[in-house]
């Protein structure tokens, strides 16, 4: 489902003397359907960078990233957009939404974007919010005013609203209490069971051990400083 080959990445800081910083070199990774792979490595090793390249958020310097046959490094913006809409989900660490939009609609939006009926989408959103223990009285409010933990749970609900065949999870269990952590791990297991290919970053080792089939230490792809 996800095939990464010979992937490298550099940042060029034009406004700081044109410094070129290589951050990844020759990364290889394949994730099959129903498989969950954890990215490990010290902070700054490039876990998030790799994930962002897979999502098309960062441009690759060279190499290929095939997702369901589409090479993200070569695709047109609209192809990546379609991919994100239908195939590739991403649960980031931070919730980014239009202010003022009610939580229920924030969660339902990914479904509305692919043409699901409003009520069907909202039902799914209600179900997820309930499972993630967001009190119903908050559903009509914008999540921008919520606590960090609540925002994270809304973010997860939104990320799992649509049943993507491929998913990227960046610290999905961070800052969650035990019950909610359990719910999120359940959601990940459900996604695997229906055949989703997942790449995740988990600092929570117990969680990692429970849901991940393999681990990849991205440090091996970090360019050695000359």
């Amino acid at each position: 489902m996800i095939e990464i080959s010979n992937l490298s990445k550099t940042f060029t800081l034009h406004n700081q003397g044109g410094v070129v910083i290589p951050v990844m070199d020759g990364a290889e990774l394949t994730v099959a359907r129903g498989e969950c792979v954890a990215l490990t490595g010290a902070s700054g090793a490039g876990k998030s960078t790799l994930m962002r390249m897979v999502y098309g958020n960062y441009l690759a310097a060279s190499g290929h990233i095939l997702i369901d046959g589409l090479d993200v490094t070569q695709a047109e913006p609209r192809q990546i957009f379609e991919l994100r809409r239908h195939t590739l989900g991403y649960v980031s660490q931070f919730l980014r939404v239009v202010p003022r939009v009610p939580t229920l609609d924030v969660v339902a939006e990914p479904l509305l974007a692919i043409g699901v009926e409003t009520e069907t989408a909202r039902d799914r959103a209600r179900d997820l919010l309930t499972r993630l223990r967001i009190p119903e009285r908050l559903w009509s409010l914008s999540p921008t005013s919520f606590s960090g933990g609540e925002q994270q749970r809304v973010n997860i609900a939104r990320g799992f609203a649509h049943t993507y065949p491929a998913m990227l999870l960046d610290e999905p269990t961070a800052s969650l209490d035990a019950a909610n952590r359990e719910t999120v791990l359940g959601l990940i297991e459900e996604a695997k069971a229906r055949g989703a290919a997942i790449i995740g970053i988990f600092h929570d080792e117990a969680a990692r051990d429970r849901v991940c089939d393999r681990e990849i230490d991205v440090a091996i792809y970090t360019p050695k400083v000359a």
Binding site: F11, R52, G56, N57, Y58, L59, P77, I80, F81
Partner: peptide
């Protein structure tokens, strides 16, 4: 030119 978040983030 590019995807909005790509241009803004990278």
């Amino acid at each position: 030119t590019g995807l909005t978040d790509q241009v803004l983030d990278d």
